[in-house]
Design a protein around this nucleic acid. Structure first.
Length: 416
DNA sequence: CACCGTCAAGTCGCA
DNA sequence: TGCGACTTGACGGTG
C-alpha cells in the first residue's frame, strides 16, 4: 500500500513549475522552461524519496506544449540524459509515478481533429514515462470523454479509437470514472471489454453515482481489471470541500474520515492517489497515520505546524504540546485532528500577532535597527487594518532566509 | 511590487 | 447558433 499526491509539492524549495503562452513559445523559451521543469521534477522526486513517499503523479505541464505543434523541439533527445538521471532516482527510491491528461484530452470525440490531438497527447505522456524508463506499472489515467447524446455509440467510439493507439501507450492506459458523464459501472464495462485496468475515484462516484454500492464494492470490482504486469491496483481518493460546490477537492484530508475509509479497504493491496489542495502535506499525514512509526515523526511534523497552529489557537497549541509529552506513545490520529481543529478556526488578530512575535523572537537580537523598525511598523499597520498578515509573514520568511533559520524555512506557518 | 485579467483545452447546457 | 461555465496555476501587462 502506497499513498501519493499529484503534480505539485507545497513548501518545498525550488519546486515550482514554469509555463509560457503560445505566442511566447519560441525555441529558446521552451528549452529553458523544459530544463527548469526537469530540475523541479528532480527536486520533488528527491523530496518524495526523503519523506518515504512512494507514489507520485507527474504534471502534464512538464514539457510545455509537449504534444502541440507549437513545440517541435526533439526534447526527449535534447534532455535524454536528464530523463535517465531522474528516472534512476525514481526507480532507486522504489517510487511509482503516473500521469493524468486533463479533461480536454478526449479520445472518443466525433471530431476527428480532436481525436488526433488526443492521440498525440497520449503519445506525449507516454514518451515522458518512456524517457524516464518507467515500467509498465507507471500508468496514464484517462477519462472516457463525452456523451454526444448517445452513450452507446460514444463508448463504441472510445473502443475503436483506443485501437488506434500505439502498443506502448495501450500498455500504460487506464480509465477512470468521472463526476458527470461516465459512472464507475460504465467505465468498468469498457475496461473489461478492452482488457484495461480501471481506476476508481470515490468523490467522482459520490457526484455521479450508480446505485448505492459502497466504495469497497467498486474497488473490489475494479481489482479484477488489474493484471500482474499493471502493478498494484490504483484508486483516487479525495474529500468534498465543505464550503465549495459539489465535487470540489478539500483543502486538506480530514484524518478521521480518511481512517474510516482506510479501515474498509486496508485488506486490499492498493495504491491510493490523494487529490487534495495541500498535496504533500496531507500525503505525509496519511502515511504517518497508516504505518508503524514513532513519536519522533510527530515531533518533526509538530515543528513544521506549530506556528500555524499557534496563530489560530493558543489553546490547541498547548493541548498538542501535552499530547506529545509521553515519548512512549504514538497518538498520530489525535495529533492531526487537533491540528485540523486549529486550521479551521477563524483568524483572530491577537493570536496572529502573538504567533508573529514568537517567530520574530528568532531575530529580535540579531536584526538590524532598520529591520526592527520595519517589523514594528508592519505589526501596527496590521493591527489598524492597514495591511494584511501576508506582509508580516513575507518579511519573517525573508529574515529566516537571510539569517539561515532552517527550522523556520521548513515551517508551514508561511503557507497558510 | 502588488494586482488582476488572460491563457489553453473540449463539452455541455442554456438562451 | 453561440456563448458561458467548468478548471488550473502561472504568465504578463498595468498601475
Amino acid at each position: 500500500m502506497s499513498i501519493g499526491y499529484a503534480c505539485l509539492a507545497v513548501g518545498v524549495k525550488d519546486a515550482g513549475f514554469k509555463s509560457c503562452t503560445m505566442k511566447n513559445a519560441d525555441t529558446e523559451r521552451l528549452t529553458e522552461i523544459t530544463e527548469h521543469n526537469l530540475r523541479t521534477l528532480e527536486n520533488i522526486i528527491e523530496f518524495n524519496a526523503a519523506n518515504n513517499i512512494k507514489l507520485f503523479r507527474i504534471t502534464s505541464g512538464l514539457v510545455p506544449f509537449g504534444s502541440s505543434p507549437v513545440n517541435n523541439l526533439p526534447w526527449h533527445e535534447m534532455f535524454e540524459g536528464r530523463f535517465l538521471e531522474i528516472g534512476k532516482k525514481i526507480k532507486d527510491s522504489g517510487m511509482r509515478v503516473s500521469m493524468h491528461p486533463g479533461q480536454y484530452t478526449v479520445l472518443n470525440s466525433p471530431n476527428d481533429d480532436v481525436v488526433k490531438r488526443a492521440v498525440e497527447d497520449l503519445d506525449y505522456h507516454c514518451l515522458v514515462l518512456d524517457s524516464l524508463k518507467a515500467g509498465q506499472e507507471c500508468k496514464i489515467v484517462l477519462h472516457v470523454g463525452g456523451v454526444y447524446d448517445n452513450r452507446k455509440s460514444a463508448l463504441e467510439r472510445f473502443v475503436r479509437n483506443y485501437m488506434r493507439l500505439k502498443e506502448n501507450v495501450k500498455n500504460r492506459l487506464v480509465i477512470e470514472n468521472d463526476d458527470r458523464m461516465y459512472s464507475i459501472e460504465e467505465v468498468l464495462e469498457t475496461g473489461i471489454a478492452l482488457n484495461i485496468p480501471v481506476v476508481y475515484d470515490n468523490l467522482h462516484n459520490a457526484a455521479n453515482p450508480c446505485g448505492s454500492q459502497s466504495d469497497d464494492f467498486w474497488i473490489s470490482q475494479c481489482n479484477k481489471t488489474w493484471k500482474a504486469a499493471d502493478g498494484k491496483q490504483k484508486i483516487h481518493y479525495s474529500q468534498q470541500d465543505p464550503s465549495r460546490k459539489k465535487g470540489s477537492h478539500s483543502e486538506f484530508i480530514r484524518v478521521k474520515e480518511f481512517m474510516n475509509f482506510y479501515g474498509q479497504v486496508k485488506g486490499e493491496n492498493l495504491d491510493i492517489m490523494l487529490e487534495v489542495k495541500d498535496k504533500n502535506l496531507s500525503c505525509v499525514k496519511c502515511i504517518n497515520c497508516t504505518s508503524e512509526r514513532n513519536i519522533n515523526i510527530l515531533e518533526k511534523e509538530w515543528g513544521r505546524y506549530k506556528y500555524a497552529v499557534l496563530e489560530k489557537s493558543p489553546s490547541l497549541y498547548q493541548e498538542i504540546r501535552h499530547l506529545l509529552k509521553d515519548k512512549e506513545k504514538y497518538p498520530v490520529v489525535e495529533f492531526y485532528e487537533l491540528i485540523e481543529g486549529a486550521m479551521t478556526e477563524e483568524m483572530n488578530k491577537g493570536h496572529a500577532i502573538n504567533a508573529a512575535q514568537h517567530v520574530w523572537g528568532y531575530f529580535k537580537n540579531t536584526a538590524t535597527q532598520k529591520e526592527k523598525d520595519e517589523f514594528s511598523k508592519l505589526v501596527s499597520d496590521f493591527m489598524r487594518s492597514e495591511s494584511d498578515l501576508l506582509k508580516i509573514k513575507r518579511m519573517l520568511f525573508k529574515l529566516s532566509f537571510k539569517y539561515g533559520e532552517s527550522y523556520l524555512l521548513d515551517s508551514y506557518y508561511f503557507l497558510f
